[in-house]
Design a protein around this nucleic acid. Structure first.
Length: 271
DNA sequence: AGTGCGGCCTGTCCGC
DNA sequence: TGCGGACAGGCCGCAC
């Protein structure tokens, strides 16, 4: 589900309720996520104060006095603040109870997400250590993508969705960014000029920033840290618009499958 | 080394 | 109304 804008929106929504609070209890109702929640996690974090809440790629990092909670929302996860009396529903797998009487609630029907705890620098955790740059980093630019794509035969869409290339871009925003950059999603990554890659990095940042400012994209059930949906779905140019008209040239938006993912592009604008 | 696919899960939608 | 199958916002780990 959540790509970078949804994770960023979630992080920003929960952060004010967490900073400075102490964890009273962790209630785990279902520990079998993509990676099981460590049995010892509740006792490790109990009684600890929350010092900061950060995002790296699609991971939310909740830094405690000792160690860090690592949260991933997978495909269907959400994390938000509830009043302490709110009853959990079927897929509300974890509640983290805080001293301010709030609960941080983790819901994930498909259980592709994860909740881990690490004692060490979370950036060195095996799931995070080999991630590529953040899209808003200065060195994520046309030159970087051009250098990285040399001799690569994969499609440019798969290339920018690979977290070793750049983090945070899932299927929706890959489609949208390629449309903005006028690049055909099937074009081989190694056959794109530095200039076009420069345009692509700008398009990626534009699309992600725009989505963040609209609270993310809610296709089905995404809600932010305060339980509210996003609105970026109203701004989508190609995603989910197969058969409809391009908003710019009025030609058709085509839908294809690329590496088992739904892929949308304008047959006229994107080359 | 780079590429593409299977699999982890549940819910929803569509055609019969 | 029920059932089977396809599909959904991610991504690791494994074959080739």
């Amino acid at each position: 589900m959540p790509e970078l804008p949804e994770v960023e929106t979630t992080k920003n929504g929960i952060k004010p309720y967490l900073i400075g609070q102490t964890i009273e209890t962790v209630i785990v109702r279902q520990r079998l996520l993509r990676w099981p929640i460590p049995q010892e996690l509740p006792e490790r974090v109990k009684g600890q104060r929350i010092d900061s809440v950060l995002r790296r790629a699609k991971y939310i990092l909740i830094n405690l006095q000792q160690g860090t909670l690592i949260v991933h929302l997978g495909m269907s996860g959400s994390l938000w603040i509830v009043e302490s009396s709110t009853m959990p529903n079927k897929h509300d797998h974890v509640d983290i109870l805080l001293t301010n009487r709030c609960r941080l609630r983790y819901r994930d029907p498909r259980r592709f997400g994860t909740l881990l705890w690490t004692e060490n620098d979370p950036r060195q955790h095996r799931l995070l250590v080999s991630l590529g740059p953040e899209p808003f980093d200065d060195h994520f630019n046309g030159d970087y993508l051009y250098q990285h794509s040399k001799n690569r035969t994969i499609s440019v869409k798969s290339f920018i969705m690979d977290s070793h290339t750049v983090v945070g871009i899932g299927n929706i925003y890959a489609n949208e960014a390629l449309f903005r950059a006028a690049i055909h999603p099937k074009r081989r990554a190694g056959r794109i000029s530095k200039q076009r890659y420069q345009k692509l990095t700008e398009s990626i940042r534009f699309v992600l920033q725009e989505a963040i400012s609209q609270g993310g994209t809610t296709l089905r059930d995404f809600v932010n840290g305060e339980g509210k949906p996003g609105y970026f779905q109203q701004t989508l140019q190609v995603y989910n618009r197969g058969g409809e008209k391009c908003r710019y040239c009025k030609n058709k938006i085509r839908e294809i499958r690329l590496n088992q993912r739904s892929t949308f592009y304008c047959i006229q604008c994107q080359r």
